[in-house]
Design a protein around this nucleic acid. Sequence first.
DNA 1: ATTGGCACTCAGAACAGGCGAGTGCCAGGC
DNA 2: GCCTGGCACTCGCCTGTTCTGAGTGCCAAT
Lengths: 339, 339
Amino acid sequence: MADERRLDVLRAIIEDYVSTNEPVGSKSLVERHQLGVSPATVRNDMAVLEEEGFITQPHTSAGRVPTDKGYRLFVDRLSTVKPLSSPERRAIQTFLEGAADLDDVVLRTVKLLAQLTRQVAVVQYPSLSRSSVRHVEVVKLAHTRLLLVLITDTGRVEQRVVELPGPVSDAAVADLRATLNAHMTGRPLADAGALILALPLQADSAEDRSVMTAVVASMLETLVERFEDRIVLAGTANLTRSAYDFPFTLRPVLEALEEQVTLLKLFGEAVDPSRVSVRIGEENPEGLTTTAVVSTAYGAQSRPLAGLAVLGPTRMDYPGAIGAVGAVARYVGQILAEG
Amino acid sequence: MADERRLDVLRAIIEDYVSTNEPVGSKSLVERHQLGVSPATVRNDMAVLEEEGFITQPHTSAGRVPTDKGYRLFVDRLSTVKPLSSPERRAIQTFLEGAADLDDVVLRTVKLLAQLTRQVAVVQYPSLSRSSVRHVEVVKLAHTRLLLVLITDTGRVEQRVVELPGPVSDAAVADLRATLNAHMTGRPLADAGALILALPLQADSAEDRSVMTAVVASMLETLVERFEDRIVLAGTANLTRSAYDFPFTLRPVLEALEEQVTLLKLFGEAVDPSRVSVRIGEENPEGLTTTAVVSTAYGAQSRPLAGLAVLGPTRMDYPGAIGAVGAVARYVGQILAEG
DNA sequence: ATTGGCACTCAGAACAGGCGAGTGCCAGGC
DNA sequence: GCCTGGCACTCGCCTGTTCTGAGTGCCAAT
């Protein structure tokens, strides 16, 4: 009973603090919310909440501020996802449907997300290793130079020029193309390396064959690991909003955002499109410990394609961000499934 | 004579201000530089320089700060390019030579530039319209779907999937491929649109032909205008260094940096690899009026490929930045010419 | 368990004084 | 005619002081 109210108090504190960015005191809390009790009672509850580590005082005789632990509890148990308004939903849909190709879809998605949440948005390209092959093309550019083009079922097209150790015949190239398509179409890219090594290639000579297989295999591997990590950002200017306590907090964040490796970690565990994951403060990797990250995966539940996230200060509108991230992920998944 | 010294004073003021970020007064100026005159004399010179608009006082009884006009004069007439140290040169060379392909070259270049200058670096991909065709490949993915791959002499590979209004025969595709390569190899991309419309295409029917030509032409145009503007950024975290007068100046800059259109304007006039252009303060497009941009083109003088720039506060080490931009542009041009 | 009352704390605003870096001007010297 | 030392003046900023008010913890009463 009283326990119940204490949680109401925490929720109220978080809501107020998120919207005002100022420590919230017992009096103003009672004024702004219908708690049905006096400030003194709230003070008692606050003392307990502080005792338990959910809120803290910046200095004696100031209001209370939520801790990371407080936000955690709020997200896990006190908040309900805030669904988008129907104009918002319509705007998303028409905006995303106007996209011309995959690059455009990703670009629009990230901008949209940044605008909806007024935070930094991060979107990962559909992972190659989780896609399958739609078509492979091999083109001979010169005696010892091949171009390999790979088209995935998610619409991603990747290519790479390979320098061969020795010349290769037209026939061998044609054979390679035919064999690759015959055996790999529809297969997941993750298996590409293994698959390609087992291919029944014909060639004029053993040398030809071994050379080509090895080159192509290593090349595919490269493709996979290299393009696994394409990531697009938007809304970095939003960082300047919520951060008055400046350079110290902004600097490492900007640095982290330029570091692809760090960004990739954001998506580490978000592999289930039906769940939105929230990481708060210290739960994040180095450099992002003052921020909160709301992330999820997009794509079919059975086959998630990649991650998508929103990043902002821990003082963040979690219900709104979770709603936006979830909705956008759904729409993108849908669009990509159609294309 | 005295005129000469007045310019020395301006140079000294700029050097001091750039390194300390504090208004510089007559006394400390004389102490730090061998001007051979007394503070009083310097004060007189300062009064004249202020009269002429090259420096200004933040408030009465403070030191002087250079104006945009002052920096302009400094860059045009008072500074000599600061060449890179030979370890720096070696580092650049080995770093850039390690690049695997074009993407890697561009990525390394932009990071390098950001690190050398400790500012924000911006690098534009080799412009498609200024490149020529090395090879064209046409692949039939489905009855009404073609993949067109374009390889330029700068190593850029671009592709696009085209949805056709009607089915097309294998023979027509083969013909298209052959004809395209026969007529376009070696030609500049800028002419692609016109050229392609004049191609002697054979086709089973007039419909086939008109459909294919139109689609491919519009597609190529799209390629050109769409990929003209690929731009890569690095070093945004450096913005937090020089900016203590925060959100107001940082905000618009971050916004401008996300706006591709604005960024492209930076390279508008920089088409001569042998000259480094400097734009200061108000000379820049909207949103960047508090910054300075040092830019140049890279590629052969006869055939510039694209632009490359460094962006920072007007209070910037111009000689250093100009040196770095020039040197990096030279090395990149070289690397790309070889590859 | 809740509440009103009360004494206490402390950050931040408002004000005052002093310091010192910097200026402009002027009269004298090379 | 240009440079210089001297001098009076300005004014931002640092420091110390005071004051105010939002907020707290505790306690006795309901």
